[in-house]
Simulated assay, not measured.
Amino acid sequence: MLIVAADQRNGMKAAMTDAPDGPGSISKDELAAAKADLVRHLGNYAPAILLDPEVALPAVVDDGVLARDTALVVGLDASGYENVDGLRYTKFVEGVTPKRARELGGDVGKMLWYVRPDKQDAASRVAREMRELISACSEEGLLLIVEILTYRVEGETEEEYADAFPGLVAGGAKLAVECGAKVLKLQYPGSAEGCVAVTAAADGAPWAVLSAGVDHSTFLGQVGTAMANGAGGAMAGRSLWKDSLSVSADLREEYLTKRAQPRLSELREVVDGMLPGR
């Protein structure tokens, strides 16, 4: 797997401006234009791109911006989350069902869930949500990539969370697979040993490493380690395009072409070079 992640909304706004008034100064039309440029000058050079149905879609499909040989992954999760009894729950994009993802031109869906497997099991609300959406996507003939993010809970120190983190990533993968997940998008668990544990927890389901905002060179190393220890690919966002969007609109093509595209090629080499038989 090699997928350009461009479904961010507030995160992409933040990348577009260093202005004192922050992301709020970027309008929806400006964000849509940036996403179209990102598809045109980066996503179309990848096997697949992940886009959101609130800003990017359906325009990039209807306007012919998305290349026909680049697969479309439709993000089903809305920005932000709700906090219930100290646990985070993802919000769904209103009205975007598996059927709607298909209508938007999607080949694949993606849904993010925040998970603390030490506090949530197969009978929990988050597990129930996973099972229901995975089943609905299956009925629609839509593959669903399940993204799992772990996080610190109230009262947990940074040191305690860091110690628990690799096990939480593996535990989240295990819970998702128990709920029927066929493909996973996961945080880098921190080491080769952590990747081995995640691969075992995934129990045959391929998993891709997400970039989580780290710089490109760091992400290349993480992907190489993960691929050597059972991962199936990468889903890269800000590590590819962040510094190509913090420029004026008339410079985006140059930056995406000269900065982001070479990074994508380097990432492709890491992913392809680790495939069996290469």
Rank of each mutant, 00 (worst) to 15 (best):
M227T: 00
E30M: 07
G80A: 08
D272G: 07
D18Y: 09
C195M: 12
S246A: 11
L240Y: 07
A14G: 09
I3H: 10
K174V: 08
N44K: 11
R9K: 12
C195I: 01
E266K: 00
V223Y: 03
T225Y: 02
R263C: 14
V196N: 12
A101R: 13
Q261N: 10
L133M: 04
R68P: 04
K242H: 11
E103W: 09
T90P: 08
F92G: 08
G109D: 06
A164I: 11
L133P: 02
T257S: 15
V55W: 04
A32W: 06
N10K: 15
L251N: 15
D69G: 06
S138V: 10
L66D: 00
E156P: 04
G95I: 08
E103D: 14
V84T: 09
V214W: 00
A48C: 05
G221H: 02
A36D: 08
G86D: 04
Y89F: 10
A15I: 09
K110P: 05
V65P: 03
G190M: 05
W207N: 10
E269N: 15
G172W: 02
L210T: 00
K174A: 14
V223H: 02
D77H: 13
R116V: 05
R268E: 14
E158W: 14
R128A: 15
G22I: 04
D163R: 15
Q261E: 10
